[in-house]
Nucleic acid binder design. Structure first.
Lengths: 134, 134
DNA sequence: AATTCGTATGCATAATTATGCATATAATCA
DNA sequence: TGATTATATGCATAATTATGCATACGAATT
């Protein structure tokens, strides 16, 4: 433990938390997760960083309790565990990033079952020749 | 300039800003300044850190445009230049620092003229003998 | 102009954080 | 079981940040 003027305990906790957020890739990850659960391959497809790198950043956020992971077969899906964080990031982008059009992510799909379900989810029966059911 | 996936420009700006805040002493300084202008000796008295150290942290905040300084005789007074920051810190302390009683600073006075005016500022004419005006 | 007071800078060093990459692990499938 | 897919870890190194301290600087006072 470091030296600390005692009174700054609260401020230290706050600073430690901010440090978790003070990273471009981690911010981007949180923004993506704010739209819902996502697997690592999604993040990889969205952000274009190598998988081990993203896993490391995810580990940082995970160890800070900001996100949680859930395994489903081959994929691991991450979820925002502390939705407040988004408020904070919104407050932030309210006065930073004024000009840039909040630039993020055109949606991209990856290889996970969520993006590539084993069979289409939209009804495909519509164009089937009559009497072709089975 | 570092490598950056282009799309993360906004996130990088936000992260850089958060880095300025992600420090216990700097957070404490901002909290103190949120109550109004303060000279370095005030901060020194409040926080108990050596003056050169505080000057350095002030320089960080200053170079980030978060605070500004004004000289008045011997003292330099710092002011919050970007009051939004307080919103951000409030949002933060809303879910960090739940138990600790938001612990900061019992007021302390220092040697600057604001704390030790050359003569009392509270009206002193009230007890003057009648007819003593001028 | 010399001194004093309040504040800022420069610099060296200790710590921490960021990144890249090789490799380990878990779950699945053939 | 062996191969394959998705993800996590370990570790080495590059960068950045944090701190402590000596000292410089500007304004005011003598």
């Amino acid at each position: 433990m470091k030296k600390l003027k005692a009174a700054l305990k609260a401020q230290t906790a706050q600073a430690d938390f901010l440090k978790l957020l003070a990273h471009p890739v981690r911010i981007a990850i949180l923004q993506i997760l704010s739209e819902g659960e996502a697997c690592v391959c999604h993040l990889e497809a969205f952000l274009g960083y190598p998988q081990p790198y993203l896993s490391q950043q995810l580990a940082v956020l995970r160890s800070g309790g900001i996100i949680s992971d859930r395994r489903d077969g081959w994929n691991v899906y991450y979820t925002l565990q502390q939705p407040h964080v988004i408020n904070l990031l919104n407050t932030l982008s309210a006065f930073i990033t004024p000009s840039l059009e909040d630039g993020l992510l055109q949606k991209v799909s990856c290889s996970c079952p969520k993006c590539n379900p084993p069979f289409p989810q939209i009804a495909i029966t519509q164009n089937l020749p009559l009497g072709a059911e089975e």
